[in-house]
Design a protein around this nucleic acid. Sequence first.
RNA 1: GCCCUCGUAGCUCAGUGGAUUAGAGCGCUUGCUUGCGGAGCAAUAGGUCGCGUGUUCGAGUCGCGCCGAGGGCGCCA
Length: 618
Amino acid sequence: MFQKEQQLIEDKIKAYSSAHGLPLAELKWQPIPFAGEWGVSTSFFQTAANEARAGSGNPAKGTRDYRKIPVPQRAQEIAEQVKGEIGNVPGITRVEALKGYLNLYFTTSEYARRVMDEVLASRADFGRGAAKTERVMVEYSQPNTHHSIHIGHARTTLLGESLARIVEFAGFDTIRATYPGDIGLGVITILWAYDKFYKGREPEGVHERGQWLLKIYAEATALLEPKENETSEEKAKRETYDAERREMYRKWDAHDPYVRELWRVTREWSLEEFRDILRMLDVNMDVWFFESEVDEPSKAIVEELIAKGIAEDERPQGPVIVKIDEKLGLTKEKYRTMVILRSDGTSLYSTKDLALAKQKFEEYHVDRSIYVVDFRQSLHFQQVFKILELWGFPQAAKCYHLSYGYITLPEGAMSARRGRVVLLKDVADEAVKRVLAVESEKSGNIPEAEREAIAKQIGLGALTYSILSVDNNKDIVFNIDEALSFDGRTGPYIQNAHVRANSILKKAGWLGGQVDKYISTQINDFDYELTKHEIELIEQISRFPNTVQQAASEYRPLVMASYAYDLANAFHSFYHAVPVLQSAQADVKQARLRLVAAAKQTLANALRLLDIKAPEVM
RNA sequence: GCCCUCGUAGCUCAGUGGAUUAGAGCGCUUGCUUGCGGAGCAAUAGGUCGCGUGUUCGAGUCGCGCCGAGGGCGCCA
């Protein structure tokens, strides 16, 4: 907001330093952490430390030996000297040297006006970063097909979607990709049991069918697992079942028409359900990769790697492997050895991921590739990325595994195979139910017809925020009461700030066709003594663009989630302490309405990046 | 055995090597609705930042060692 002034002062500091032989460290500016007045500061601790270190040998006669002065004290001296050099800078009210810091305080009315103008002119684009040349692909949400999606899948989906929105808004050309696991032993297990015991008995309804398949999966798994004290009869039966299952997998692989058709139809059921869930979460994928589709091309890649001397072929006695540590010349085992093809020639997860990466680079021209996959696959991705590097892809250095902790239940890990899951759809339905209960008590003014739609926005907002407000690498023990809480640091708290801002604007007639009123930059406002609540709110708003860049560069939606809360918190405090419509003076009311409009816009932008709706009423 | 992640208030979690005082929420205690929506605001209490040791002018933050929790390690995904 004050880049020009800041640059001017930076130049003065640099000029002073070179004139006096100061070993000036890089100048880092940060907001001054005091409420009531705002500005930026930089410190001279590093410079003083540099000076002390550089002061080896004897100091020149008549000069001081800086090695003997404590760093904080010397930093303060420098700050004071620099302050003396700066003089008057328009826009800066005062300059202060304090505890080794140089503080610049901005002219409040000018600063406030600049922030408001920028937000209200840019609107939904406020905070958008300059377009960058790199193309980023975010791959997220890789559920297995043939059964419903559980709450664990919500994490990769929400994390990935939020990250994609952040990265895109930060200025990158962004591609959203999903990679459902539509084939594998698990899928075949369901297919086998469905075909043998339940064919044609599937229930109506997309979600009912998915849950029904999930039950079949758990049942089939139990049938196929060895039991304790198994009789020989039971054992024989189990082995027969298992043979049938494996035979079905073989047939699938051999493109048997019956098995393929059975697979295609049932697969479509779950894709239908998956699309429904993505619609509910407002996720629009650009690219759909399927495991079944990269299977064939992946095998050719193995041949190429063998030919290049990267992979070693131990068939038929052993598999095809890449001795990564050896190839990198590492003595300690770190990346180890990766198996990239079974000895019988069938592909593995690793084989397919190599094929997928190649496709991402060559077909989609991706410069940077982010994989949102849970933390148990860290080694797998480190290995894949290293092999891509050995293979010669420069983009390999910009592949990033965004690993996240998994969601567990209080009674332990979730397991689709054992039917021990909490379904995402069930949680979403429960969320809506709970919001409706609150609404009927608190929001009598909302028409019946709109309640359901708003309840979805609030309920999903609560769920989404509870997941995004935990850092990537931390596990979440799922507790529905906590996930759907509406009080305190939650999605609804932030949404409520947006609703309140909207309510004020509505009463002032500043919505709809009246918006031009507050876009005007000709108004001479904020020319009064601002309260600390106004200052805090304006400062929070002004931080949004930097927060977008930080969240994007660290691949962390949490940064945005924390910010959104801080902003909402600042707004709620302002709301209580500062009258807007009741302002005695017309110009103060005008300025505060602009502030409310800017806060509403920034809240909406931040929520959008978190994949949370910003309702007008709730 | 080797590698990765984590350990901060009773609980759940934030916290770019820098400001005499490490922050939120939940829960506990207490105020606030004749003001724009109380899904809120304000206040109180609650800490050997796992332990030790280095690096540094300065460490919750970086290194090393230990303790504890979880995960991974050639033909699962």
